[in-house]
Design a protein around this nucleic acid. Structure first.
Lengths: 244, 244
DNA sequence: CGGCTGTTTGATGAGTGTCAACGAATGTGG
DNA sequence: CCACATTCGTTGACACTCATCAAACAGCCG
């Protein structure tokens, strides 16, 4: 599995710059699986992007306040979007896994609103926004896909905004990650999970201790296992039933 | 004030169809105030929209599951966006006041994800999306503004997603409404507030009773007053200090 | 080995949800 | 215009989830 490789600092499949077969911009979903789109438009996009940049844990992709120039797409690893509140504490407002697009918060007024960092080592692609917009003036499909991605992000927030208890928050998060891995051809039952419990607790709006206790309970009930930064969903029906 | 008029079923300023001086698509912010943009592009937009449709309390603008065709912009009144969870209960995921755009959740896959209803009687404009997209292929400005609006919505969710206690949730909401009224030339200290406490509690993720108690506390401390579906912020510094 | 950082455990209390009941406001039909 | 029904907001008593504080433990790296 990709991330495991990255962790061990082993070799990573190297693809030529310009290749893009991961992000939502260049793929579509067929039968719950992501499939690469073949078209002139995609070739045009690939001509402007810079792909598969390596990044180490805790390094920054972009910083709040800086001038918005690029969108980014996760190729491997996990990334977090951090917002600094007026009171000065950091709140993790979003978490990204492979295929997702980062940087939409910079479009509004030309400055990023959050800081995005790598949770684990990984890689990402850079999509210069103004060239992309140039393309989207020409190709209806690109404009379409861009707007659909932003719409999807809005929906994600609308729906996630939900009122769950601690256990449901965690399970719902793990389920999202599971589905995203599955859609990209990996196992839905076992996948890398490198975010720290502190970060995850912050993201879910829980105390670190509460999250730890919830994990403990889920392990005890043989719902899931967490070892070596890898999650295994042991009992999928029981796992899903938490959300009812 | 507009909404007060609407409430009493008194006369409403009638403007010719096609006029659009309210939504974020046709205005820009200068010194915290919304100003109408004058340009060919705006004229083009005004040619396709259907403006100032009247609507009664509880009537539906669009329904979850229906085919996405239009964006909508609030002209007067307040609207709520309702999401039906798998468990069958309704969660209010967004609230719209004048100037805001509704319907972005339909772009992703061509079907609306939520149902939008009027909280009070009011009026709105209809913006047919495909004609708008047509325009945005021609006018860079329109494409720009569309994406900026979606970006703003994403930012709003990122930032609102915050972890506040009950009192802070309420004050933060009232503050948002206050700022939006102010930006449109109305008083920041006194404005209509027609959403029911049940709906608001749902939206904020609180129990109705908790919200009632928070209101009581704020009234008792002379921070704000709520009478006749109208909020008055009595002590602005005290009001804002709740969020520290 | 010692010093980090990340996770776990226990004890305690504050903040909210829940239940139940009532009062106030609003709407409806005769 | 009044009687009734219905929705909406308020209040009190209580239970429970979860945050907080304090401390210990585990893994990792120089």
């Amino acid at each position: 599995m990709l991330n495991t490789n990255l962790n061990n600092n082993k070799k990573i499949e190297q693809k030529p710059t310009g290749y893009c077969g991961d992000c939502e911009l260049c793929t579509k979903t067929v039968d719950n699986r992501r499939v690469r789109i073949q078209s002139n438009e995609i070739a045009a996009i690939e001509a402007i992007i810079d792909s598969h940049i390596m990044i180490e844990k805790n390094q920054t992709v972009y910083t709040a306040g800086n001038t918005f120039q690029n969108l980014y797409t996760v190729h491997s690893g996990m990334f977090k979007s951090v917002y600094l509140t007026q009171q000065g504490d950091e709140r993790i407002v979003d978490v990204f896994i492979p295929g997702q697009i980062m940087g939409f918060d910079g479009i509004h007024d030309g400055k990023y609103k959050t800081t995005v960092k790598a949770v684990s080592s990984g890689s990402y692609c850079v999509i210069p926004f103004y060239p992309l917009q140039e393309l989207s003036m020409k190709h209806r499909d690109i404009q379409n896909r861009l707007m659909k991605m932003m719409s999807e992000k809005i929906i994600q927030f609308e729906i996630t905004h939900s009122e769950y208890n601690a256990q449901q928050k965690l399970v719902s998060f793990v389920k999202d990650v599971s589905e995203l891995y599955y859609s990209r051809g990996f196992s839905a039952k076992q996948f890398p999970f490198q975010i720290s419990q502190r970060d995850l607790a912050n993201y879910l709006g829980l105390a670190e201790e509460t999250l730890s206790r919830v994990f403990k309970k889920l392990k005890k009930n043989d719902v899931l296992a967490l070892a070596d930064h890898q999650i295994t969903i042991i009992d999928m029906p029981k796992f899903l039933s938490v959300l009812d």
